[in-house]
């Protein structure tokens, strides 16, 4: 038996919005410590990994490990039927070919139930090695989204260059070129606007903006995004999954990590 309840169902909606255009089908692995999902996009250029801690749920029970393969587009459709303030429970019985989604409205007298068919998906699980990255940039998620969107007007790839003075995002195309430079800054009053750069060695790498723009669909989950880079390894774009409660308290309940293979010079 598997049962997981989130008090703020909107978090699940945001997670699905962040991944369902990149991957249409995926398996959730459920264990006593939480739920996780890993999947590559169809062209095998990027990989998304979602992790939700069991203790981030208001109720979490997983008697034995389960793999819940499903169509994420369909899951997203059903989650659209939940109100933003609804409590959402996911339930799966051992050996069943479907999961149940229960939405409880805040008024406490309205309960909706939906079922989704499960699928047997080929497992394509990749082992991601522990890597210590040369460069880590932590910046406002909305700023990163804006830069990727703006530079995509210029070209279809962005070169991220890090030096001691800061980080440059640049693109070149038929119409010309453009770049955005950020230097480290910190504000005591608005930590969500901080740019933090940690660098061992300067580097420059190029990535397809098509994928980065897909990753920025996770922007509503968290005010800051972390980019981790090293030469000749995939870029990591990480968003923490933050649940905001009624009392405005913020609770980190997991993360989404996107990995993107670099472009290399011919």
């Amino acid at each position: 038996m598997f049962e997981a309840k989130l008090d703020r169902g909107i978090v699940l909606k945001k997670i699905l919005d962040a991944i369902n255009q990149l991957v249409n089908e995926a398996s959730w692995e459920c264990t006593s410590s939480g739920m996780s999902l890993q999947a590559m996009d169809t062209s095998h250029v990027s990989l998304v990994a979602v992790n939700l801690n069991g203790d981030g749920f208001s109720k979490f029970r997983c008697d034995r490990n389960m793999v819940l393969g499903m169509n994420l587009v369909n899951l997203s459709k059903i989650l659209k039927c939940a109100g933003n303030d609804d409590k959402v429970t996911i339930k799966a019985a051992d050996g069943d070919d479907k999961i149940k989604l229960i939405f409880e409205a805040p008024n406490e007298y309205e309960v909706s139930q939906y079922e989704i068919k499960l699928m047997n998906l080929d497992a394509e699980y990749l082992g991601i090695p522990e890597t210590s990255y040369n460069v880590t940039v932590k910046m406002p998620a909305a700023k990163f989204q804006r830069i990727c969107r703006d530079l995509n007007q210029i070209g279809d790839a962005v070169t991220i260059s890090c030096t001691k003075s800061g980080v440059d995002f640049s693109a070149t195309g038929d119409l010309g070129n453009g770049s955005v430079s950020l230097s480290q800054n910190s504000s005591f009053d608005k930590p969500e606007d901080n740019v933090t750069i940690s660098m061992q060695e300067p580097l420059s790498q190029t990535f397809a903006l098509k994928y980065l723009n897909q990753f920025t669909k996770a922007t509503p989950l968290c005010s800051q995004v972390t980019l981790s880079l090293s030469p000749d390894v995939p870029l990591v774009v990480e968003y923490k999954i933050i649940e905001e409660n009624e009392e405005d308290s913020k609770n980190e309940i997991g993360h989404i990590r996107y990995y993107l293979a670099p472009k290399i010079d011919d």
């Binding site: 062209s43 990989l47 699980y125 082992g127 397809a208 010079d265």
Partner: peptide, 14 residues
Amino acid sequence: KGAQTRIDTFFKMM
């Protein structure tokens, strides 16, 4: 610019 690499050339299938 540059050739696109694939993610599964960096991470091994388990």
